[in-house]
């Protein structure tokens, strides 16, 4: 049984290869960017606005509000990263409704890549805000004895972030595959609907945890 879509390689040249994960990601990126471009091409500032514009405004404002509620004072700065994280994971998970689709989030490589991005983004934003010394000082909080634990915490939460999303999405796809072989009717549909819910929840959890990590690093008194 194939656990990850990484294993299905479509093209290879040396170490460079195109697997289903990358291609699906490109497709999702294309869909998101073209959709956004089509809608934002005809933005109006007056009333009435189109339904699509209204939908996008609701999505963007909700993301902004969520970031703000977690504790980041200027959500516009983090909206690009955190919002894209949520939209990418959510769209990748929601597309499981299409038959034959394999979510890139079901690949540990993708989730690891996203977790590494978060892992890098946290010090990036913190250093930009407080400087390198201010960021490193966080690792000595509340006392220098906590330094190894803080480092372990940093690494383990990145690992947990990637494994959580991968585990959930991969298990969802696996369960669906197994159920299809056992009971091909009705029950897989229910599980598929549950998978959609799980996917949305995971997208929310992933992005909100990333926000929390960044927000924790942005605090003056450290994590």
């Amino acid at each position: 049984m194939r656990l990850s879509s990484d294993e299905l390689v479509l093209w290879q040249y040396g170490i460079v290869h195109l697997n289903v994960t990358i291609v699906t990601t490109w497709a999702l990126m294309l869909m998101l960017v073209i959709g956004a471009r089509l809608i934002t091409r005809k933005l109006v500032t007056g009333a009435p606005i189109s339904r699509w514009q209204c939908t996008l405004e609701v999505v963007v404002l909700t993301l902004k509000k969520q970031i703000e509620e977690v504790g980041l004072r200027q959500p516009e700065k983090y909206l690009g990263f955190l919002g894209t994280l949520f939209l990418f994971v959510a769209s990748a998970n929601l597309c499981t409704i299409f038959p034959g689709y394999e979510p890139p989030t079901g690949s540990l490589s993708t989730t690891a890549a996203l977790a590494i991005c978060v892992f890098v983004a946290v010090p990036f934003y913190a250093i930009r805000e407080h400087g390198l010394r201010g960021y490193l000082k966080n690792y000595l909080q509340p006392t220098f004895l906590m330094l190894p634990f803080n480092i372990i915490s940093e690494l383990s939460r990145t690992l947990a972030l990637s494994i959580r999303l991968f585990g959930n999405m991969m298990s969802g796809a696996m369960i669906l595959g197994i159920l299809l072989t056992i009971t091909p009717f009705i029950f897989p549909i229910v599980m598929s609907a549950l998978g959609l819910l799980t996917g949305m929840v995971q997208a929310y959890i992933f992005s909100i945890l990333a926000t929390v990590y960044i927000a924790a690093a942005m605090r003056d008194d450290g994590a």
Partner: peptide, 24 residues
Amino acid sequence: LIDWFTVIAQAANFLILVWLLKRF
């Protein structure tokens, strides 16, 4: 389970997506 080329490619894809969505 981890294909490091895919990890790098996906990270790059994600960063490109961040830039594109930020712009569009």
